[in-house]
């Protein structure tokens, strides 16, 4: 499933960009710090996954839904994430819905896999 441990790291370039976004101009980031943050991010994903999984299980759901994740964030005291994430989610759902409508109109069959996935999720 996971061939190498590096497969579980988030891409370095992305991390670097995010760091640059978060830091003021002229700030440098040491390599160690970057890798530590990348690792922390991976662990955060695992941590959040585990929490939301247990929340989903509590409701006898097998699928981790967006609600579970938001609840998990709340439980983990990352409440500040919830609002922007909710907005993002709404935007995403809106886009998906628009695309669905568009696909219905067009019936062009150009939908890709991600769209199908999101439809299933919705």
């Amino acid at each position: 499933m996971v061939e190498r441990i590096e497969d579980l790291n988030l891409p370095n370039a992305v991390i670097t960009r995010l760091l640059k976004d978060a830091l003021p101009d002229g700030a440098n980031v040491s390599k160690e710090a970057r890798s530590a943050i990348a690792r922390a991010a991976s662990v955060f994903v695992i941590f959040l996954t585990s929490t939301s999984t247990s929340l989903a299980r509590k409701q006898n759901h097998k699928t981790i839904t967006a609600t579970n994740i938001l609840d998990a964030l709340k439980q983990l005291e990352f409440e500040s994430f919830i609002d922007p994430l909710t907005k993002d989610l709404e935007a995403y759902r809106k886009v998906v819905k628009d695309k669905k409508d568009k696909a219905k109109k067009d019936t062009s069959g150009t939908e890709n896999g991600t769209e199908k996935e999101s439809e299933n999720a919705a």
């Binding site: 994903v45 959040l48 939301s52 981790i64 967006a66 994740i69 993002d88 989610l89």
Partner: peptide
């Protein structure tokens, strides 16, 4: 759910 990785 498909939204989950996105949210993550």
């Amino acid at each position: 759910a498909a939204e989950a990785p996105l949210l993550f």
